[in-house]
Computed example of a mutant assay.
Amino acid sequence: MTSSPAPPPVRRLTLADLPACLALAADRGWTREEHKWRLLLTAGQGYGIDAPADDPPPGSPGPGRHPRGGLIGAFVLTSYGPPAGSPDRTAYTCVSMVLVAGRHARRGLGRRLMRHALAESGSAAVFLTATDFGRPLYEELGFVPVGTTTMLTGRFARDGADGRTAGVPVRDATAADLPAVLALDAPVFGADRTHLLARLPSFADHFVVAAAASGTGITGFAAAWPNEGTTVLGPVVAEDETTARALIAELASRTDGPVRYDADTRHRGLTDWLRAHGLTGDTTNTLMVHGAPDIPGDIGRRFAPYSVALG
């Protein structure tokens, strides 16, 4: 009696696997998002499962058929340590881009990938942004919902923007601002993401800061980066909503075409302001966490994630 072959192992991905990741995303109807995938595979750690040797069955490719090779499953794990000077704080990991090839759906691969993510996370708490499709699996594995985001897109109507934003000076960030950006971000994000913020000057089209009224220090920062068909506004970190609006309005004024903003529904006033300025949408996702009571940081000053894939 012959035994079934062992399933392909979960292996670490490198930047050389970028084309396979893009193909897997396209297989599930996702946009290819090469710019974002490149960041995730360099700032985080990708994991994947290679297609077995007999996948797909022999025969001429036809509608719905796929060439041999490639990935049949993948995810990315991004690690965050405790903020500097706070060794007693919890470390976190963020799981994103959990994908299973359509021809291998409903075979337990998604569960296998997520169990591997939890094992790789060790003692760190784990958070993610879940679609309605993925949420049941995450709940089964012990993740609990802690918030909701709404994806808003459209052309930002700069004319008539709230006059209060005019009193907030916003300028381009410089290399000299990075220490102040990191100092502001540490308590707001609640974990150390220096490895991501240091990439903003090269990853983003625009990276701006709000200068303190005293002329010394900053009260917020934000970035805009290109994605498929839109410009994503994020991260947005600010001491108050007025400053967040000024940062957003400045970035939107520099952007041709539609923007995307992932709004935490706890910022109701900001969400209403964005809708009043031309952004629309009702696609919601659920913030979930495993091993901690909530995602890290101060939601009162964290107005937009770097990306829903990164928090």
Rank of each mutant, 00 (worst) to 15 (best):
M1N: 11
T2L: 08
S4A: 13
S4V: 14
A6K: 13
P8F: 05
P9L: 10
R11G: 09
D17N: 10
A23H: 08
A23L: 08
A25H: 09
A25R: 07
A26V: 07
E33L: 09
E34Q: 15
I49K: 00
A51P: 03
P52D: 12
D55Y: 14
G62A: 14
P63D: 10
R65V: 10
H66E: 07
R68V: 09
A74Y: 00
F75R: 02
S79L: 07
P83D: 04
D88V: 06
R89Y: 06
C94R: 06
S96G: 14
M97P: 00
V98R: 00
V98W: 01
V100F: 06
A105H: 15
G110V: 00
R111C: 07
R112M: 15
A117L: 04
E120C: 10
F133D: 11
P136Q: 08
Y138I: 08
F143E: 00
V144Y: 00
P145C: 07
T148P: 02
L152H: 00
G154P: 12
R155W: 03
V168K: 01
V170I: 11
A173T: 01
A173C: 05
T174L: 10
P187A: 07
G190Y: 01
G190W: 04
S202L: 06
V209G: 00
I218L: 14
G220W: 01
T231H: 11
L233Y: 08
P235F: 07
E239V: 15
E241T: 11
T242M: 10
A244Y: 00
R245M: 15
I248D: 01
E250C: 11
L251S: 05
L251K: 05
S253N: 08
R254F: 03
D256T: 15
R260Y: 04
R266V: 13
L270I: 09
A276V: 04
A276Y: 03
G278Q: 05
L279P: 00
T284D: 12
V289K: 06
P293N: 10
P293E: 10
D294H: 08
I295W: 03
I299T: 09
F303Y: 13
A304P: 02
Y306Q: 09
L310F: 07
